[in-house]
Design a protein around this nucleic acid. Structure first.
Lengths: 348, 348
DNA sequence: CTGTTAGCGCATTCAA
DNA sequence: TTGAATGCGCTAACAG
């Protein structure tokens, strides 16, 4: 007769409250870590939660929530196409966010200037519930992140991590592994003959670039000793600078067999390669699938593009923020950002 | 003073009902396409929905729903590791499903027998709200799918499509493109010298295998004419049969430069290759990242693995079913299953 | 420090 | 064929 004791229905907060002999409101207070509850009571409630295997119903929680959660995206200012795609993806997820009771804002900051980035970060203290930042790993930035998290703001790093900070989560690829992947691709595409390989980075002061460069060299040295890697060239992620660098490279090294572009500004490299008539016999591997790199893959100028899915990254950052707020576990598999390899044949 | 007219709040079903001059219940009836509403009323409500830009609140809908939606997964019986991973992933998403008010069951069927598969499909008519099926494209199967969809059941094909049927959605990769990708990998890894390339499939009666084989040949013929592709060998996705085939292959063709394994049973190929001492000088490209293929990538037996993410596929099937039920749009970007390329360096 | 109460937006009886 | 009323499980405002 008693269907409560015989069913496997999931426990509600009401059940927890009853089991802990407190009211619904008190149970809610300890569940959401709100102040004003005696330690002993907290313990009783937590115990009940454990005993009943209670897990809040996300739908009910969202429906009842009045205030929207606010997340601020701090993205690099400038014309970088990949960064633009990140911004478009937050646009694309606006409706979904509304369903999840979150609102968002995108702010463009000069991430190459640590002081400015730090200031932008600190300005968000108390202004939002989470900030997702793509920036430079620098003491000033780290400190700003730490202050934010101490103020209770969830901080998520995007694309380039600040591992020494107290950020709750990093959304992005393993850049060392990405560099290694590039090296294997270059090594196997070039083949067994000895030759020179060039590396063009945006700036080695950027953690993601430095890590990719590191991984690339590791594999080149260990597995492709017949290929000699030239000193890295810094093009500031700028197509114009990259074009000049590539032109000089081609002139100085007739036996250049491959170029690994670690950062942005690939179109500059492509045009120099094309202008020199070397587009098809030089292996060219770069990062991020954009309209430009996609075209270069199709026309044979680029041989492979290593990508991180911008849409996946934005959605992941959002889901992780949501999970942090409601202290739910994250599905690591789902949130792992893959190192995508695109050839002309598996383009989306 | 009137905050209703001045705010940008999202419209509720209540608002729609009011605008259409009907009750909440009637508005709900037309929204969920339930019977018993005069055509004129339906039109009025739909019009109001359009005018107000109404979109149901998923959280509220889930919270209010009494009944769980049921989805049945029809997966191939047998010991295929990849299929096992699919099953594990539905397990892994059980809690999430409960939050979404869906329950699921996994059924193992002999998908190689069209009649049996068709019977299993038809048995689900009226038993569940959606069936996700990984099966063979065959007239009997197509017909069973069509009957199911006509009965109002959402049907989603998984991994291998049945495009001529009325299934609502296909979750899986573009297998022709996957085959093309394999060809480019093989072609570039082998290099410029002429040699022979073998293809081992499970069965060319399987649509996904046939498509991969087709794509592979396309690229081989057009872009790597110096490589001659041997006639395809069918190993029934079985490691033991594949091992025998590989052994014969190596004996018959001393100049065999590469093997493309289209289906399952890769461990058989690996052991034959290792036994012959040809593991490192034969390019070996196959599908699906499993513990075995992962190990073979790391030890150098396999050179690349083309993968479709099992977790992504299961979650995608679930999200698509959810979207179909509530007639919401699906995010095509998010639901596109990527053709992942794994080298030893970008393993997850 | 703790309890009571009133919805959130929709699905779902039960009446009419 | 339609409408009124109830409650899902939780958050939040208000009392004590």
């Amino acid at each position: 007769m008693d269907r409560k004791s015989s069913t496997k229905e999931r426990a509600t907060l009401e059940d927890v409250a009853q089991a802990a002999q407190v009211s619904l409101a008190t149970a809610d207070r300890v569940l959401n870590k709100r102040p004003g509850v005696r330690a002993a009571t907290v313990a009783r409630v937590n115990d009940a939660v454990r005993r009943l295997g209670y897990r809040p119903d996300p739908s009910a929680a969202k429906l009842a929530r009045a205030r929207l959660r606010r997340v601020v995206f701090l993205l690099p200012a400038g014309a970088n196409r990949f960064v633009g795609m990140l911004g478009e993806q937050v646009e694309a997820n606006l409706e979904w966010m509304r369903d999840q009771r979150v609102g968002s804002t995108v702010l463009a900051v000069n991430v190459f200037n640590p002081a400015e980035l730090a200031k932008a970060l600190l300005a968000q203290a108390g202004q939002c519930d989470a900030v997702v930042v793509m920036g430079m790993d620098h003491p000033l930035v780290r400190s700003a992140i730490d202050q934010l998290t101490q103020a209770g703001t969830v901080v998520i790093t995007l694309v380039s991590d600040v591992p020494s900070s107290t950020r709750q989560h990093y959304v992005g690829i393993d850049n060392t592994a990405a560099g290694r992947t590039a090296a294997t691709l270059v090594g196997r595409f070039v083949g067994r003959h000895s030759a020179k390989v060039a590396v063009i980075v945006g700036s080695l002061a950027l953690r993601d670039h430095a890590e990719r460069y590191f991984g690339f060299n590791q594999v080149m040295a260990q597995e492709h000793p017949h290929l000699s890697v030239l000193a890295p060239l810094e093009g500031q992620d700028d197509a114009v600078q990259n074009e000049a660098l590539t032109r000089q490279l081609l002139a100085a090294h007739p036996d250049l067999a491959a170029i690994y572009s670690v950062g942005a500004g690939n179109p500059g490299i492509s045009s120099a390669l094309c202008a020199a008539g070397r587009a098809h016999d030089t292996v060219f591997v770069g990062h991020e699938l954009t309209p430009a790199s996609r075209a270069d893959l199709l026309n044979g100028t680029m041989d492979a593009v290593i990508n991180q899915d911008a849409g996946h990254e934005i959605r992941s950052a959002l889901r992780v923020a949501l999970a942090q707020w409601s202290q739910e576990p994250v599905n690591a598999d789902q949130e792992r950002i893959r190192i995508d390899i695109y050839l002309k044949d598996n383009l989306p």
